[in-house]
């Protein structure tokens, strides 16, 4: 079974600090990591490989530094990795990104399964996974929480939907995006880190890919960002202290009147 896992390098968010004056994210010194939700996709792929044999290829589009994310995927157990990088890809929206990644998948060649994270924690659109499937014209399953069976060139899985789990059967090749519930990601191993350090990661670019120039980068993106605002960090709400029994009663009194005024109770 040949599995491709598209991953994204994102800013590390757990230590993100906000500038209280401007309300913007302080980016200086912020580390980049593999999109945390992609770790579930990598784990799912590695488990399927352990059960069914085959290979796992990590794929990432981004600046040359994104190689760091790919090395981490190799350290976790991926067999190989491909970086898709070219200045002409800069400013791609989800339409152009999924086009470029789909062309990279075609260049990699035969595959049975593409497994992606549900969304990236920076862009937060969840559009690139289904977009890649659409460009490749293969079936897609999103929000996958459990894989039931993989046999006879079909995969049966459970999608987390609004009122429970939808059980779907898809023929291979197909693409799925997974949620956290599916598996706890493993840590990179020492052997994996050594292998990652030594591995040369090929770079796919406009030089060696079949691409429609009009579909690339900022120019090829249907959506355009008009402006960026930074919303106020605080709502200027009221905070009351409830240190003792009496204060608890009066704080809750005040809360109830507040909720009443808002028409909630």
């Amino acid at each position: 079974m040949k599995i491709i896992v598209p991953i994204k390098q994102v800013p590390e968010t757990s230590n993100v600090k906000m500038d209280p004056e401007t309300g913007t994210v302080i980016r200086a010194g912020v580390e980049t990591v593999v999109n945390p939700l992609d770790l579930y996709a990598l784990e799912t792929a590695l488990r399927l490989k352990e059960q069914h044999g085959g290979t796992v290829t990590a794929l990432s589009m981004g600046p040359p530094q994104a190689v760091k994310a790919l090395k981490e995927a190799v350290a976790m157990g991926c067999d190989d990795a491909v970086l898709v990088s070219d200045r002409k890809f800069g400013g791609s929206d989800t339409w152009a990104t999924s086009y470029t990644l789909a062309q990279a998948v075609k260049k990699i060649g035969d595959y049975d399964l593409i497994i992606a994270g549900e969304r990236a924690t920076d862009g937060d659109t969840a559009q690139v996974g289904p977009g890649i499937a659409s460009w490749l014209d293969i079936p897609v399953a999103t929000y996958v929480a459990r894989i039931e069976t993989v046999k006879d060139k079909h995969i049966v899985l459970e999608r987390l939907v609004e009122d429970g789990y939808q059980i779907l059967s898809l023929p291979l090749p197909c693409l799925m995006t997974v949620v956290k519930e599916i598996a706890a990601p493993r840590l990179p191993t020492l052997g994996g880190k050594i292998r990652a350090r030594e591995l040369t990661i090929p770079v796919f670019s406009t030089e060696n890919m079949e691409l429609e120039p009009a579909a690339l980068g900022l120019k090829g993106s249907p959506t355009k960002v008009v402006k960026i605002d930074t919303p106020k960090v605080t709502r200027g709400g009221k905070v009351v202290r409830a240190g003792d029994d009496e204060a608890v009663v009066s704080a809750v009194d005040e809360l109830m009147s507040f909720l009443e005024a808002k028409g909630i109770v």
Partner: peptide, 23 residues
């Protein structure tokens, strides 16, 4: 922006060459 809308729209946006904005 439900489990179906967030799957259908990005798939459809490619088929009809449309711009799509999430959430």
């Amino acid at each position: 922006a439900t489990s179906s809308g967030r799957t259908l729209m990005p798939y459809l946006a490619i088929k009809v060459t449309a711009g799509l904005t999430a959430d």
